[in-house]
Design a protein around this nucleic acid. Structure first.
Lengths: 250, 250
DNA sequence: CCTACCGATCGGTAGG
DNA sequence: CCTACCGATCGGTAGG
């Protein structure tokens, strides 16, 4: 076997610092990730069809055929990215939806917040997904659509629960859920790294999403039991007392 | 001058049924629009780079070079569509923003409603704009960005006014305005012609957009004058009376 | 609005 | 990971 001067020799004892099988081919894995990152950025900017493998190779200082050492085809490259984009946010959102320590309104807020944060920390991948949806392989398109549907169903279920609990307004849950995704996802098009932080934007957008569906005090009072109406009156009196307390002459 | 057998002769009296100069070349104009429509649909589906002139020609039953009888280049075709997409909704939105018969909250609702209706009646053109932004000529990109900025500024100004009037919550007006566009624009990705009507969806989304920024009764009461606090108390009493009236035994 | 043609570039492969 | 090459397709033009 000819020695490869480019590749540093690994220690002769195979068990040294290799906890997983994935670490067996570190060099190739590293380059693979490098290709994926460059491809994500370029596909997001110019679209899948608008980006040639030549573009990707040039951006990495490689010749185009070198990419075939890591990927079978341009389509496989895209499919790899799609899987990443579909599976990435799903688990975190599902985990929030299941939390029993939060009411439905609180979960809706947390989900929106998390969704915005994911979009803004994976903007290239997100824009790539949205722009290249029509160019996916049939298998990837199926996964992509299933992931989108599951996410919408999950949010719709939380909203449904919130409506039943009287925390949210009675609405078309499908329209409401998709609108929550709309307000979240659109951040990808306008967020500027120089201005508000990702956390700040996520908070503001989550506040708006929750407020857009929250039961107003007025509507709540209109459907109120006598006992709760009296409690509300007491609150109003407290508030009035406070207001007058600030200006005793009135 | 050689006569053109393809073009039907116009009546010798030039004032007959020709109100505008645009009607002078009806045949070519008609075909031009036909090309634009097919191009819009295909560009929206597969993107600008993902659609060849061959695709467009085939979809119209023409050979590819025939398209050059109507357009100088593929880029000119795109630019023509961009202008349509940028100028289309701008006037209507600006008109609503200026209406003095409506309060700022009402104007925000009307603007959102109109925006959703435009997106859902021009979905192909809208998706084309969003997907092909990076492939625009420098001149078109400039117009496109200016149009987007103007629209956001206009909505931000209405929101600012609503905050000053106490109708809307104090928020970052830029984030709020862009979020209103987010909830509106995203309808392009999920609206299904079979379900709720465009008007119904536009109403629901506008309700959510307004609610997302509307001053809650609670916050309003907290900043209330004694006179208004007493009025609110009276309303609460009315409501309590009504509730008890439905069940005199309690 | 067509046929015939152009150079450039595309994704992908052979062979090392 | 490179050089050299493949057929296919791209946008655009000549000439009618």
């Amino acid at each position: 076997m000819a020695s490869d001067s480019q590749r540093p020799k690994t220690p002769s004892t195979p068990r040294a610092a290799q906890p997983t099988a994935a670490a067996a081919t570190p060099r190739k894995q590293l380059m693979e990730n490098e290709v994926l990152e460059h491809a994500t950025r370029l596909f997001a900017e110019r679209g899948f069809s608008g980006t040639s493998l030549q573009d990707i190779a040039t951006s990495m200082g490689l010749k185009r055929p070198a990419l075939y050492y890591y990927f079978k085809s341009k389509d496989e490259l895209l499919d790899r990215l799609i899987v990443e984009g579909v599976n990435g946010p799903a688990h975190e959102l599902a985990a929030i939806a299941k939390r029993s320590d939060l009411g439905p309104a609180e979960r809706l807020h947390a989900i929106t917040r998390q969704n915005v944060k994911w979009v803004l920390t994976h903007t290239d991948l997100f824009l790539l997904l949205v722009k290249s949806e029509s160019e996916l392989s049939p298998a990837s398109a199926k996964k992509f659509n299933a992931g989108r549907r599951d996410a919408a169903d999950m949010v719709a279920a939380v909203i449904e629960e919130g409506v039943a609990a009287g925390e949210l307004r009675p609405v078309n849950t499908r329209v409401a859920a998709l609108s929550v995704f709309g307000i979240s996802n659109w951040t990808a098009w306008w967020f500027q790294p120089g201005g508000d932080s990702i956390d700040s934007v996520a908070d503001q957008v989550a506040d708006m999403a929750l407020a857009s569906l929250q039961q107003s005090d007025l509507a709540e009072r209109q459907a109120m039991s006598p006992r709760r109406a009296i409690a509300a009156l007491r609150q109003d009196l407290d508030r009035l007392e406070q207001t007058l307390g600030q200006d005793r002459s009135s």
